[in-house]
């Protein structure tokens, strides 16, 4: 398996140039009235479902940009959003 990620700045590059940044969970919640369970859910918990998920990556050995892609975790392949929408 090779792995290619399309960086919004640099274009398609070898997957090892990037670092994974987690499932997309939305903006950070306010800390003040966060219950431990809600905090834990945001920080540690994940859906971990096989299939397509939206997730963050950073082009570590490149431009340094953080961005999201959709990736099929079963095939380990980036999925184009257009294809996804077309399939829905």
């Amino acid at each position: 398996m090779a792995f290619t990620i399309t960086c919004p700045v640099c274009g398609p590059r070898d997957g090892y140039e990037f670092r994974f940044g987690g499932e997309d969970k939305g903006p950070r919640p306010e800390a003040a009235d966060l219950t431990p369970a809600a905090w834990c859910d945001y920080v540690h918990m994940a859906d971990s479902r096989p299939g397509v998920q939206k997730e963050w990556w950073v082009h570590r050995q490149g431009c340094g940009a953080w961005f999201t892609i959709h990736r099929d975790t079963v095939a380990n392949q980036e999925v184009s959003l257009n294809l996804l929408e077309a399939a829905e």
Partner: peptide, 12 residues
Amino acid sequence: TVEWFRYHTRYD
């Protein structure tokens, strides 16, 4: 460090 700053401000 750069990655860390950018990660934690990525939605902003």
